[in-house]
Computed example of a mutant assay.
Amino acid sequence: MGFFTKTRRSGARLNVPALVQVAAIAIILIRCVDLLMLFNLLGWKGLQELIFRSAQTWSLTLVFLASLVLLFVDILCAFSVVKGRSWARWLYLFAQISAFGYLWAASLGYGYPELFSIAGENRREIFHSLVMQKLPDIMVLLLLFIPSPSRRFFRLQ
């Protein structure tokens, strides 16, 4: 059984492995839950204050815009991996490495705003909290890169 099946109406149709479908759905759900938790944490006034504060300086504006771009890149990657685009899983990996690096730096006091930092008493505690926070993304990356059906799916496209 191949990755393509022929139907009368649509011609060739792509059979997406279940693991890739789960990974794509997980990416979208993780981002939606992240946004809901952020809105719950800040509330309407806190969200307005974050946007207002982000517009105060160029560095904060760039961080805010970069976080929005990262959100849209993640969602683009989710839709693209289902279409079999191998570049999308690599872009998702790069986006997660970038987000992890920025959160690590912000948590150690090298970035703004404080909203993007992880609380902890020492580097080990911060790193553990950060890994636990990024665990769903790590699991998605494992689904996209490790299982042989996923690798074969992206190789054939």
Rank of each mutant, 00 (worst) to 15 (best):
F3E: 11
F4C: 05
K6M: 12
T7V: 15
S10P: 03
G11C: 04
A12I: 08
R13Y: 12
L19S: 11
Q21G: 10
A24N: 11
A26F: 01
L29H: 04
L29D: 06
I30N: 12
V33S: 10
D34M: 11
D34I: 07
L35D: 06
M37P: 06
M37A: 14
N40Q: 14
N40S: 15
N40E: 09
L41I: 07
G43A: 02
W44P: 05
K45N: 12
K45E: 15
L47W: 10
E49A: 15
L50Y: 14
F52I: 13
F52L: 13
F52D: 13
S54E: 01
Q56V: 15
T57Y: 07
W58N: 07
T61M: 15
F64M: 07
F64N: 01
A66N: 09
V69Q: 02
L70I: 07
L70E: 14
L71S: 00
L71K: 02
L71G: 00
F72Q: 03
F72R: 06
D74K: 09
D74E: 11
C77D: 02
F79H: 09
S80G: 04
V82N: 06
V82C: 09
G84M: 03
R89Q: 08
R89D: 05
R89V: 04
Y92L: 04
I97N: 03
S98K: 05
S98Q: 11
Y102H: 07
A105Y: 07
A106V: 00
S107W: 05
S107L: 00
L108N: 08
G109A: 00
G109K: 00
Y110E: 10
P113D: 01
E114L: 05
E114F: 04
L115H: 00
I118V: 15
I118N: 03
G120M: 06
G120S: 00
R123D: 14
R124L: 14
R124W: 14
F127E: 08
L130T: 06
L130R: 08
M132Y: 10
Q133L: 15
Q133E: 13
K134L: 14
K134N: 09
K134H: 08
K134D: 11
L135R: 06
L135V: 03
P136V: 06
P136L: 02
D137K: 08
I138C: 00
I138A: 14
M139K: 05
M139I: 15
M139G: 13
M139D: 02
V140R: 05
V140F: 02
L143T: 01
L144T: 06
L144A: 02
F145I: 08
F145G: 07
P147V: 02
S148I: 13
S148N: 12
F154A: 04
R155Q: 13
R155L: 15
